[in-house]
Design a protein around this nucleic acid. Structure first.
Length: 247
DNA sequence: AAGCGACACAACCGCTGCTTT
DNA sequence: GAAAGCAGCGGTTGTGTCGCT
């Protein structure tokens, strides 16, 4: 809805983007970098809202994007990540280099939802995944979550002190700096470099190889099985997603 | 060839959380 | 500490395309 105040407002355009608009946006980003979306329309001459520009760039124009069909490997990862995270599309997309949250979401809703209907039914979209969750730890502070592997049957808070087959996940959230997110995953098969950890500095950058993520996923999936039969299907508990900081 | 429905994906909307003032 | 503005997320809608009748 347009305001009719004293000041004239530029009527923002909606709908599909034209090639010349794409060009303007691309030139703007090349000259000014990403970000400052709120001022794009003023500075670029585009009659589009900041949100629209950001979305267009992120989902379509960014050079980091990988176009084309999902590979079997990517599809498998989406399914397994969704199994663990629910509809946390940006998190899932962050583990798939060159793929966007919108792309993953669309792919899920069009392709995969048909293939796994019983599974989809169990994940009600409006329940836990809809709301963005408040981080239980301050940004930029690494947190350590120690959780139990499949052997343990007791429902703990997921970060308990049980030391039977413990695994560690260090999760850092760097939202303040351009939404860069960094995670250290449990040590895999030793091919991830220095300390045996997989480090993702920025989900949009192609730093991950899929096999490494697979290793990490496998270490989580034992837990996921447990969550599913405990009546909380296919969601990692809050404590694991945003674990409390151990002293 | 035309009409229609299903499908795929781009784009929008409403909301939340973070940062800045 | 409060308010405003911005960025980002996930759900939903809109639109173009394709295949079938």
């Amino acid at each position: 809805m347009d305001k009719e105040g004293g000041q004239q407002e530029i009527k923002l355009k909606k709908g599909p983007w034209k090639p010349e608009e794409d060009l303007l946006l691309t030139q703007y980003v090349e000259n000014h970098g990403e970000g400052k979306w709120a001022t794009v329309s003023k500075r670029s001459g585009l009659k589009r809202g900041g949100k629209s520009c950001r979305l267009r760039w992120k989902n379509y124009l960014s050079p980091n994007l990988k176009r084309g069909e999902m590979s079997q490997e990517e599809e498998d990862l989406i399914i397994r990540m969704h199994n663990l995270l629910g509809n946390r599309w940006s998190l899932i997309a962050g583990r798939l280099p060159g793929r966007t949250d919108n792309e993953v979401k669309n792919y899920w809703n069009t392709h995969l939802i048909k293939r796994y209907p019983p599974y989809i039914k169990r994940v009600s979209s409006r329940s836990s995944s809809n709301k963005r969750r408040k981080l239980s730890h301050p940004p930029n502070s690494p947190t350590i979550c120690v959780f139990q592997s499949s052997q343990s049957s007791k429902k703990s808070n997921g970060c308990g002190g049980d030391n039977n087959q413990k695994q560690e996940a260090v999760i850092t959230d760097n939202r303040s700096s351009h939404h860069a997110e960094s995670q250290q995953f449990p040590a895999g098969n030793g091919n991830e470099g220095g300390k045996g950890d997989i480090v993702v500095e920025n989900p949009s950058l192609p730093q991950l190889d899929l096999s490494s993520i697979n290793v990490w996923l496998e270490s989580f999936e034992y837990g996921a099985e447990r969550w599913s039969w405990m009546g909380s299907p296919f969601y990692l508990p809050e404590e694991i997603m945003y674990p409390t900081v151990l002293p």
